[in-house]
Computed example of a mutant assay.
Amino acid sequence: MTMTSTMIKELKTDGEIESSFNIMKQLRTHLNLQSYVKLVAAARKENQYRIFALYKKEEMLALVGFMPMITLYYGEYIWVCDLVTDDNNRSNGYGNVLLSYVHQWAKENHYHTVALSSGLARTDAHRFYEEKMGYDKVSFVFKKDME
């Protein structure tokens, strides 16, 4: 499979964001279209969140969402919030292309670290991050809902 026929584009308009929902829903199953568009808009405004789609011809195949962050642990870095390839197009290298794009974007914008978290049950994703993309497993993420 050749990647020469693919294109990566930042999604900026509500229409572009809406058009990505069916793919993002495969990762973020708890969201509906309205909450998705609202959250993306808020994250773009408040947290410099950016979302990019990978297309082959005119078909959207995969998405990556990320944002710059600052913590005492990593300093200034890029946090990958979302990385998903459409179910019908997995194992074609699209996740690799998008994550490599984030790495290049980070370098060009003077960030020296890219970090992400991945659900405990997503063992295929963990293997991808560690074996194919060279990520180190450095911590556990803990969560407590305040409801």
Rank of each mutant, 00 (worst) to 15 (best):
S91G: 02
N47I: 07
L39D: 14
L63Q: 05
V138H: 04
A106C: 12
M133D: 01
V114T: 03
V97C: 10
E108M: 11
K137W: 11
L61M: 11
G65D: 14
E58N: 06
D124N: 11
L54I: 01
E58S: 03
N32G: 15
F140A: 07
H112L: 08
K45G: 03
A42D: 08
H112I: 09
S20M: 06
Y73T: 09
T6Y: 02
N32F: 15
V80F: 05
V40W: 00
Y55S: 00
T6V: 06
T71H: 01
S117H: 05
A62L: 01
E108Y: 03
D86R: 00
R50N: 05
C81R: 15
L61C: 07
L33N: 02
V102M: 09
T29M: 06
R50V: 04
I70K: 13
V97D: 06
N47D: 08
V80Y: 13
S139E: 12
N92E: 07
Y74F: 06
L72M: 15
A62Q: 00
M7R: 10
L11S: 03
R50E: 03
S35F: 03
V80T: 13
Y73A: 12
V80L: 12
M60N: 03
L11R: 02
N32T: 11
G75L: 13
L99Q: 04
